[in-house]
Measured scan of single mutants.
Amino acid sequence: MTTFKLIINGKTLKGEITIEAVDAAEAEKIFKQYANDNGIDGEWTYDDATKTFTVTE
């Protein structure tokens, strides 16, 4: 398992979430479901060097 981080730069929600996932594809699926569940819709980026996803509304 690898640790992945999501940085949320939303209009109403900001913060960071860290999860353990098998790979970046699994982490992205989990993070996008979390964002969808919380009404966050924005532009996604991923930095493989730091294993960090960012979503900006």
Rank of each mutant, 00 (worst) to 15 (best):
M1K: 05
M1R: 01
M1Y: 15
T2I: 06
T2M: 11
T3N: 10
F4K: 00
F4Q: 01
F4N: 00
K5M: 03
K5A: 03
L6R: 00
L6D: 00
I7V: 06
I7F: 03
I7N: 14
I8Y: 14
I8N: 03
N9Y: 07
G10K: 07
K11S: 07
K11D: 11
K11N: 13
T12N: 15
T12F: 08
T12V: 13
K14V: 13
K14H: 14
G15R: 15
G15Q: 08
E16G: 04
I17F: 10
T18E: 15
T18R: 08
T18N: 09
T18D: 08
T18A: 14
A21S: 07
A21M: 09
A21W: 03
V22Q: 13
D23P: 01
A25C: 04
A25G: 09
A25K: 15
A27G: 13
A27E: 00
A27P: 00
A27D: 00
E28C: 02
E28Q: 07
E28I: 10
K29M: 11
I30C: 02
I30P: 02
I30G: 05
I30Q: 07
F31P: 00
F31R: 00
F31H: 01
F31K: 00
F31A: 12
K32D: 11
K32C: 03
Y34F: 07
A35G: 08
N36A: 10
N36D: 05
N36V: 13
N36Y: 14
N36C: 03
D37V: 08
D37N: 15
D37A: 15
D37Q: 11
G39V: 10
G39Q: 14
G39N: 12
G39R: 12
I40L: 14
I40C: 01
I40K: 06
D41E: 15
G42R: 01
G42F: 01
E43C: 02
W44E: 00
T45N: 11
T45V: 10
T45W: 07
Y46F: 08
Y46K: 13
Y46T: 02
D47R: 11
D48F: 06
A49L: 14
T50E: 06
T50A: 15
K51N: 11
K51W: 06
T52V: 09
T52E: 03
F53L: 02
F53P: 00
T54N: 07
T56L: 14
E57L: 09
